[in-house]
Amino acid sequence: MTTTPTTTPTPSSAEDAQAAQAAQAGTEAFLGRVVTDFAGASSTLMTVLGDRLGLYRAMAGAGPLSAADLAKSTGLDPRLVAEWLASQTVSEYVVHDPTAGTFELPDTHAAVLAQADSPAYLVGAGDILTGHFLALDDVERAFRGDGGLDYGAQHPCVFSGIERYFRTAYLHQIEAAWFPAVPGLVERLERGARVADVGCGHGVADLLIGKRWPASTVTGFDAHEASIALARAKAIEAGSPDNVSFRVADAAGIGPGPYDVVVFFDSLHDLGDPPAALRRAHEVLADGGLLIAVEPWSTDRLEDSIGHPTVRIGYASSTALCTPGSLAQPGRYGLGTQGGPARRIRLLAEAGFGQAGLAADTGFNLVLAAVK
């Protein structure tokens, strides 16, 4: 009888087998990561839907509810409400009692999803992300073209999402953290300061500042006419305060001044020419005036941000919205939402400002300050 001799793998073949196993394990691990990310994107879709339909607001503080109860209170289709609740259960946004057949939105979750004045309110960010998906074809064309995508061409949900998302920071950070971190700023506002807000959007921050420091005057500037129209409408709703006004103008049109304070709330990186905007801010500031730029949190070195959730969101928004918007404007600077404080501090110094530095790092925002 002939037998087949048993051979022992050579060292090279054993190493090849181990390498193949390691590669397979790496692929499976990364596959799991991508599936998790896709699951998060799917959850965001359901979160935006729940917000728009008023489902979270209906569940907030209501205790355990059946799907039928929630459908009745919201006037929505019972079958789809039941399916939405199932999606919320598996995403661990709501708590399900299988015995009672009920679903509950915990107060801790309602603070994030349903309570607009909560310091944790985040649901507005979902509309911004929705806008990124709606603009996907336009962003693809920007990649294949000159990189520019006009901000005004974005879906309206982007503008409303930006307002809601940043309102949380304005409401809870301007008075409590951002402004107190800048030496002398609060005292100036209390005495009465002339403030210019560059890229004011819907004017939420300006109305808050005007209300909190009534001795000061605030002028909001934005090149997006629709945003200024809405800011003016919000001012009327707020009682038409005589110390807050809004003007349609790009960064070059700030003026005439002089101002005691110029602020850029999450807008510096959106501009086509941030250096020129900072130089103009320097021109319209009175001697000794303050420049404040609040930017998204980021690190100077890309490798220090790997895996950080807010930076991941930041780079996605920078790619889909902020950088294409900058490249669509004169100057085409493309600063981007990320890149760390050092680059921004350098821009302040190059524009002629002194004492440029990082006044506060909240973990979500960088507060930069400088003096003329």
Rank of each mutant, 00 (worst) to 15 (best):
Q18D: 15
G148D: 02
G289V: 07
G101P: 06
A328M: 09
P183Y: 07
S317D: 02
T4R: 15
G75R: 05
T36F: 04
H202R: 15
D77L: 08
A41N: 09
R188K: 11
S267A: 14
W84A: 12
Q21Y: 09
I162G: 00
A125K: 15
A29E: 11
D300E: 08
F179T: 11
A351T: 09
G32E: 07
R212P: 05
T4M: 13
A14H: 06
V112T: 14
L185W: 08
G54V: 03
R312M: 14
G40W: 05
A111M: 11
A19W: 12
V34E: 14
T217F: 07
L348A: 04
I174E: 13
Q338N: 07
H172A: 00
L321K: 03
F103R: 05
H282A: 12
A359D: 04
A68I: 05
H202K: 13
A68P: 05
S73L: 09
T8L: 11
V94L: 09
G255T: 04
A60S: 15
C200R: 00
G363C: 01
R57W: 00
G288I: 09
S42A: 11
I306P: 08
R247P: 02
T323H: 00
A226L: 00
T219L: 09
L31R: 13
Q154R: 10
E283I: 00
A370N: 05
T130I: 07
F38H: 08
S305I: 05
Q154F: 10
G192S: 11
D137T: 11
S42T: 12
Y151H: 04
R164V: 01
V204G: 08
T130Q: 15
I174S: 10
I306F: 14
A356P: 10
S318Y: 06
Q154V: 01
T36D: 15
T4Q: 13
D260M: 07
V90D: 07
Y121K: 12
E283S: 13
S267Y: 01
Y315G: 07
S227F: 03
T2M: 13
G61E: 07
G352D: 06
V90K: 06
P106S: 01
A142D: 05
R212T: 13
A135F: 04
R280T: 08
T74E: 12
V94F: 05
A235C: 04
A120N: 15
G61K: 12
G203P: 12
A17Q: 15
D127L: 15
L335K: 00
V371I: 12
A328C: 06
V294F: 04
P183S: 10
T217E: 14
V94R: 03
V186M: 07
F179P: 10
F179H: 08
V95G: 01
T217K: 10
A276M: 08
Q115C: 04
E140I: 14
H224N: 14
T36L: 08
G75A: 07
V371Q: 14
R188C: 06
C157F: 01
L53N: 01
G325T: 03
Q21G: 11
